[in-house]
Each structure stands twice: as C-alpha cells, then as structure tokens.
Amino acid sequence: MRGRSAIWRPLADQYGLLALVLLVSISVANAISPGILSLTNFSAMTTFGVEIGLLAFGETVIILGGGGGIDLSVGSMFAVSQVVVAVLVQQGADIWLGIAAGIASGVIMGSINGWLVTRVRIPAIITTLATMYAYSGTALLLTNGIDISNFPAAFNVFGQGMVLGLPFQFVAVYVPVAIILWFVLTKTLYGYRLYLTGTNQTAAILSGIDIHRVRMGAYVLTGLLCSLAGIIDASRLATARPDAGLSANLEAITIAVLGGTSIFGGRGTIGGTIMATLVITLLGYSFSLANINSVIETGTVGLILIAVVLGQHFVRRWTAAVSPRRS
C-alpha cells in the first residue's frame, strides 16, 4: 500500500503532474508535426509564447496574492498599451517616448484595477470585468477602431529582431522578466509578503504586513507586464490592433492555473507558469504547423486544465486515504 502511494504522490505535486503533461504534449506535438523539436522551430515557437507568457506571469502574481484576486482585463490592457504607442508614434513622437507612454498606460490601468480592488473593495472578478470593457472601449476609441500599421522600421526590433539566433523579445524581455520575477517572488521581501498574504490574510495583517499594498503591487506589476506584451505584439505584427488580446483574458488565467497556481492564493510558482506556457505554446505551434486551428489548441488546453485539477483532487484524496497524514 505504502509503495503505491509513494509512486503516485509526485503526481499530487504541482511539478510532477505538470512535467507529465509537458512530456505528453511534447510527444503529441511530435506526432502531429514530426520534426517539431528542431532548433529553428524552437526559435519560432518562442516568438509565439512570449506575449501570452508575460500576461500569464501577471495573472500568476495577482492570483498568488489571494483574496479572490484575478484579472480579467489583461487582454484589454495589452490592447490599450499597444494602441497608445502606435498613436503617439504615428503622430510623430519618438519611438522611445511612445514606448514609455505605452508602459505608463499599463501601469496606470493596473493601478486603477488595484485601487478599485484594494481601496474601494469591489471584488476583483467584477472590477476587472468592468475594466475589461472600459479598457477595450478605450483602445477602440483611441484609434477609431482601426488598426494602425505604419511604424518606423526601428520599432520592428522589439517583435521581429533576433539576438543570438533567438527572437529579441524572448532574449531581451521574456527571459529577463522571468528571472526578475523568479527572484522577486522567491528571494525578496515583496515575494515573501505576497505568499504570506495569499496564504492567510489575517495572519499576514497581524504580522504587520500591509496586505493592500502587497496586492496593489500585484495589479500594477500586471499592468506593466501587459504593456510590455502589447508593445511586442504591435512590433511583431507591425500592426497595433485595438481588438488584440480578447481571448487572452481568460487564456492567461488558464495558464496560471494549469501551472499550479491555486485559485485561492498563496500557492504557485513562476516555474510552473513557465512550464504551462511551454505546454500551451508547444501545442499551439505544433497544431499550427499541422494546420489545425488555434481554437482546437485552446480547447485541448481547457481539457488539460480540468483534467489536471481533477487529477490533483483525486490523487490527493487517494494518497491521503492510503497513508493518512499526521494532524
């Protein structure tokens, strides 16, 4: 009996189950489009993963902070910030000024979310549902609903440039952001406080942690990440689309949860989110190579999501039944 639980226990663990999913998806991807695991393909794949990966990082941080934290507006912030950059650049502003303004817009939108959630105390799911509408509308208003595409060539580097044979945005944005976030979450004061707040809000307050500031930080950070992703997206496609990122709102949450972030807060890691992003990108890329619609891929992800959460539930229950935990 004990042996059985020892074999299965790793699956109750976040990484264990996720690694299994990743392995399966690699073999599925390989079956669908043989030869996908080549270096060139890897480089192309990273292009796809960066944007949604950044949004998922933001979602992870917000959900980690607990208290029902969630952000349905990431896709909308993603759209607004790319449109801000495009409008400014189109009107002759310096690229860097445009980018700075785009990032600032993300920070401002994130702050508005954070303010509504932590100060006005509107539940996050409602706040961000409302701001999702409001930000999307703003993006459309800014451009009259039209795509903007006449960027100066210098702007192309952010989404089309190559560094060391890999996409610029992967090497210069995603990897550094991942490292910084990993560092922030696991090594710094803020990270410790975020996990503690997400685990037990009352105990955190009684430990002298200002939980509202901690959560506010998560929303602002998410706004920032969304703006980075938005700018990369505009540059990659050489077009700023006010309706970009509509499906990203829920997809980012899916990735975070698939990566092992508990919807109740306090549990989850950047590593898990990276692995989940990898799963999704891999599937997406192999599906697109095989000419399967990306929606099918999203559906597969939905299936995996429920299967993983269900699986964790049943494996946990089973291992608990086999060897009762000390209380």
């Binding site: 996990y195 685990t199 009352t202 955190a204 306090g266």
Partner: peptide, 9 residues
C-alpha cells in the same frame, strides 16, 4: 489556525 499560522507555507 485562522489567525496565526500560514497553513501551506
């Protein structure tokens, strides 16, 4: 349990 410990930490 409710105010003291951080359960999963």
């Amino acid at each position: 349990k409710l105010q003291g410990i951080f359960g999963s930490q």
